[in-house]
């Protein structure tokens, strides 16, 4: 059975999904991520789905539950690299991946995690609207 590799960069875990997931692989991945967070004490998880052509409700739910599991273990999850076609399909299906942060690419995902760890941004100022908009969603 294929396993999705989990790489550790600093205190962030990088999961790069390159092939369309089978149900078994997805469940295995959830377990692996939980194990690695506990073992490594990582504070963030980045799931790169650049390689995914199709995200169905099953994969969507898997992403949501990885995010939820990580949050319980004290790590933030960012899903990065979603393709336009995938985003359009998800919207048409009415799946909005509640509770998942997204970023355009791995680099921005790392930045979001770093900012989340630092707490409120240092340069956040009295302009309420700006600070609110800058907060990662």
């Amino acid at each position: 059975m294929d396993r999705v590799p989990i790489l550790k960069i600093g205190d962030v875990l990088l999961v790069s999904i390159q092939v369309d997931l089978e149900d078994k692989t997805a469940i295995q991945l959830q377990e692996d991520v939980a194990d690695r967070i506990v073992a490594s004490g990582a504070h963030g998880v980045i799931i790169d789905i650049t390689g995914l052509d199709i995200v169905d409700s099953f994969v969507g739910r898997m992403l949501s539950s990885i995010a939820a599991i990580s949050r319980v273990l004290g790590a933030d999850t960012v899903v990065v690299g979603m393709r336009p076609a995938v985003a359009i399909t998800l919207v048409e299906l009415g799946l909005s991946l509640e509770g998942i942060q997204t970023a355009l690419n791995v680099e921005r995902g790392m930045r979001i995690l770093a900012e989340a760890r630092q707490g409120p941004r240092l340069h956040r100022d009295e302009r309420g609207s700006t600070a609110e908009a800058a907060a990662p969603r």
Binding site: V80, P84, A87, S96, Q101, T102, A103, L104, G109
Partner: peptide
């Protein structure tokens, strides 16, 4: 609205 939601899924506002 659909466009905005899709952009958010990709990590843009």
């Amino acid at each position: 609205l659909k466009t905005v939601v899709a952009a958010r899924l990709m990590g843009a506002e």
